[in-house]
Nucleic acid binder design. Structure first.
Lengths: 108, 108
DNA sequence: TATAAAGTTGCTATATTTAGAAACTTTCTC
DNA sequence: GAGAAAGTTTCTAAATATAGCAACTTTATA
């Protein structure tokens, strides 16, 4: 615990783990909804890493445990504001990666 | 234009460009607010890459140009829902990277 | 410099998120 | 299995985001 290295979790990893590998039926469709689900799972997973309960995390931010529960289960489309508050409390650095796909499809 | 490779923009790059290098006065404070600002700038930058006007992008999503303007200027804390709609319309893949920092500070 | 195009800002209304409180369910631990 | 701890759900109120519209400002372009 004390000597663990920088932990890094990417959305891709989470997708692979929870949704399925790329190419699998349920991957590319539902992408939109699933991303929110994954975000909730990331909060949960980060909280677990910190060995915190929902109540403890809530107290750090100033909300009740039920709020945390809702966020983790993606009950709604969270605000950037909220997401950042949470990850900040978890001493996690969250950032957004945007990948602009090429206009032209490559032929295999 | 036709042969351009996969374009990739990270939050870190944007921070360096718009806010300043790490270590600079204004980088680590205001972090919270600035991330939202950067997100807006990323939308704008992605839209420009696509050579779109705010009106065109708005039409793709089904909102008016004033909405896009507000998003790009980070008038408010956008919803994940909204952000994904925008980037989807821009044919951009957005994902979240979460980095859990180590509990122990490394000594230089 | 006119004119058009693109982008911004204020105002309003509606929809949705945030949040607390309390009851409830699940999970752990003895 | 009983009790406690952790997590979930429902209901309600409040704050905030979304959105349209129209007027306005800025930027391009003829």
């Amino acid at each position: 615990m004390a000597t663990k290295e920088m932990r890094r979790t990417t959305l891709s990893e989470m997708k692979d783990r929870y949704i399925g590998q790329v190419g699998t039926p349920d991957r590319d469709s539902y992408e939109y909804e699933l991303k929110m689900e994954v975000l909730g799972k990331m909060i949960k997973s980060a909280r677990k890493e910190r060995n915190m309960t929902q109540e403890q995390l809530g107290k750090l931010i100033g909300v009740q445990k039920s709020q945390i529960s809702k966020l983790e289960s993606s009950a709604n489309s969270a605000t950037i504001d909220t997401i950042m508050k949470v990850f900040k409390a978890l001493k996690a650095d969250i950032n957004f990666h945007v990948k602009l796909e090429d206009d032209f499809v490559k032929l295999a």
